[in-house]
Simulated assay, not measured.
Amino acid sequence: MTSPLPLVRTIFDNLTTAVLVFDAQLRVQTINTAAENLLSTSVRKTQGQTPAEVLPLAPQFAEAVARALDSDHAFTEWGMELQLVDGKNLVVDCMITPLVDSNETRSSRVIVELVSTHMHSRIVREENLQSLHDTARESMRAVAHEVKNPLGGLRGAAQLLERELDDDGLKEYTRIIISEADRLRNLVDRMLGPNSKPYFEQLNIHEVLEYICSLMEAETDGAFTVERVYDPSLPEVSADREKLIQAILNIVRNAWQAAGPQGQVTLLTRPQRLFTIGQKVHKLVFRIEVIDDGPGIPPEIGAGAFYPLITGRADGTGLGLSIAQSLIHEHGGLIEYERRDGKTVFGISIPLE
């Protein structure tokens, strides 16, 4: 028979809600994995800390916990703003519940539950974006197929006409028609996106990133520079190497172009526990962040940057991010975009199960 304490701890750590347990002296007894992830801390670091020590830059949090203990009443504070030590800002719904033991008259523990409003908004936004993205891609596929049919006829007619012409000057025009028809066909093929199933194999994600860096160095004649912030504890991931390279390379190339020759590009890797993608909570995902200090996506484009043919660059095709999103989606993952501390951050999350 399973001992109840390990079972309770397992359940506690697999809750998606961040939970902190304080004793009667308002010192942390324990926190769960979701709280570690949300507050960017650890159970060992917070052990014995007061609310003010857990969140020194959020005095309203300590006041709320103390008020609940003093009043012996549970209450909820909606939309509480928290600032973490690392500078990250959170908006959470905070539920505080004092607990009274059977042999006590006053509360001996306080349970604090934190639910990030950002997470809920992200899930809703992600679902809406994925739905719109799928609709846009299906529409684009229908248009692409309609375009390819007359292109084939146009190219064939130009080839037949070229055979009948004796004038080299006129043949040059037919060669232009054939060349432009081929260019449009290639563009249509790119619009249709990848049509092969992914081939999954065990990969070292840092080896893949280093290969992408070498490609960028060759592509830019050595002008590409990058800061690496790797977490060596990341395990191998099951992924399609070629598709993963294509997706990440598109994002790294965009970052370098946005930052410019004097700009800074950073590659960051780290694991995340209990991460939600769509409606599914994954126990562990690996996250890659591509960070640049460029101006970011123009506000008028916003989340539409992931749609086909939407671009903020005059020389862009608007297919890079759309294709990258599709490739990462084939791995059960997602790509997110945000502006953080004046920098552009593209985060790629892929489940490690």
Rank of each mutant, 00 (worst) to 15 (best):
V112S: 03
H133Q: 15
A136H: 14
E172Y: 03
S102V: 09
M140Y: 06
H120M: 11
I177Q: 04
G152D: 07
I178Q: 11
S107A: 15
R125M: 12
A157Y: 13
V143H: 04
R155T: 12
L129F: 11
T97Y: 01
G153W: 12
S131Q: 15
I123E: 08
G169E: 12
V124D: 13
S102C: 03
E104S: 09
H118T: 11
R137S: 07
L151Y: 06
P98Y: 05
H133Y: 15
T174E: 04
H145S: 10
M119S: 10
I178S: 08
E127A: 14
D134F: 08
E172K: 05
V100P: 04
N128W: 12
I177P: 03
V112D: 03
S131C: 12
T105D: 12
L129M: 15
M140C: 08
S121P: 03
S179Q: 10
E126K: 05
S108F: 00
V124C: 13
N149D: 12
G169M: 07
R125H: 13
L160N: 11
R141L: 07
L129I: 13
S116D: 09
V100K: 08
D167C: 00
R175E: 03
L161P: 02
I178C: 10
E146V: 00
I123C: 04
A136P: 05
N103G: 06
G156W: 01
L154N: 02
T135Y: 10
T174W: 06
G156D: 02
L161I: 07
D168Y: 04
R122Y: 13
T97V: 02
R163Q: 14
G152S: 09
I111C: 02
M140V: 12
D134Q: 15
L154K: 01
L132M: 10
V124L: 15
E180M: 00
V143N: 05
G153N: 13
I111Y: 02
Q159L: 10
G152F: 04
K171F: 00
I123M: 13
K171I: 01
T135C: 09
H120P: 11
D101P: 14
A136L: 15
S107L: 05
E113G: 03
M140E: 08
R155M: 14
D168I: 05
E127G: 09
L99V: 15
L170N: 12
R106K: 06
V100I: 07
I111G: 01
V143D: 05
H145A: 11
